[in-house]
Computed example of a mutant assay.
Amino acid sequence: MPVYTVHAPVADSADLAATDKFTFVRDGFHFWAAVASVIWLAWNRLWLALVGWIILSFAIDFGLARLGIGRGAIFFVDLVLMLLMGFEAASLRRWTLSRGKWRQLDIVVADDEEAAERRFFERWAARHRGIVNDQWSVDRGGPPPTRTIPGQPFSKPPLPPQGSIIGLFPEPGGSR
């Protein structure tokens, strides 16, 4: 399962008004960052990383050509650099966010980004709600919960009858 890191801008307080600015960064290999590095970096607005990538690529290609290395070896080095970019693309994105004064709020494991958002906001809302006893999250089909919180209208569940057996077992002494 993919791992996502959740980032929020530091300037905004982490409240319900700032949730639309939260960013989810998937950890792992990014195919399009490996195949089209320059386009991927520009698309994600990683400008400093884009400039560094262009300079690094040209410097390595120029240096290898000056050393008289063959085109096949230069292509292999470029292929290794492409794989490196694919594996480190998420780290570059997190680094750029941290330089832009964003903070990491949480780490979420989910199948896709939508599930990661759902999972994160469920936990985040529960933490920021400040309510220990949420009336809306109580299972309405089951017996009433047995909580002893002052001021809450909860009742004790009924006691089972004496001598009875709960489940799919026959009554003691009854016929089968």
Score class of each variant (00 low, 15 high):
Val3Ala: 03
Thr5Leu: 09
Ala8Val: 00
Ser13Gln: 14
Ala14Asn: 13
Asp15Arg: 09
Ala17Glu: 15
Ala17Arg: 15
Phe24Met: 01
Arg26Val: 01
Phe31Gln: 06
Ala36Asp: 04
Val38Thr: 13
Val38Leu: 12
Ile39Val: 07
Trp43Gly: 00
Leu50Tyr: 04
Val51Thr: 10
Trp53Glu: 06
Trp53Ala: 05
Ile54Lys: 01
Ile55Lys: 00
Phe62Asp: 11
Gly63Asp: 09
Leu67Thr: 02
Leu67Pro: 02
Ala73Val: 14
Phe76Tyr: 08
Val77Ala: 07
Val80Gly: 10
Met82Val: 03
Met85Gln: 08
Phe87Gly: 04
Phe87Ile: 05
Ala89Val: 04
Ala89Pro: 10
Ala90Lys: 05
Ser91Leu: 15
Ser91Pro: 07
Arg93Leu: 08
Arg94Ile: 05
Trp95Cys: 06
Thr96Ile: 02
Ser98Val: 09
Gln104Val: 01
Asp112Val: 01
Glu114Phe: 08
Glu114Gly: 05
Ala126Tyr: 08
Arg127Phe: 00
Ile131Ala: 11
Asp134Gln: 08
Trp136Tyr: 11
Ser137Pro: 10
Asp139Ile: 04
Arg140Cys: 08
Gly142Ile: 01
Pro143Lys: 15
Pro144Asp: 15
Arg147Glu: 13
Gln152Ala: 08
Phe154Val: 05
Ser155Val: 10
Pro158Lys: 09
Pro158Leu: 08
Pro160Glu: 07
Gln162Pro: 12
Gly163Asn: 07
Ile166Ala: 05
Gly167Ala: 03
Leu168Arg: 15
Phe169Asn: 14
Pro172Glu: 14
Gly173Arg: 07
Gly174Arg: 15
Ser175Trp: 12
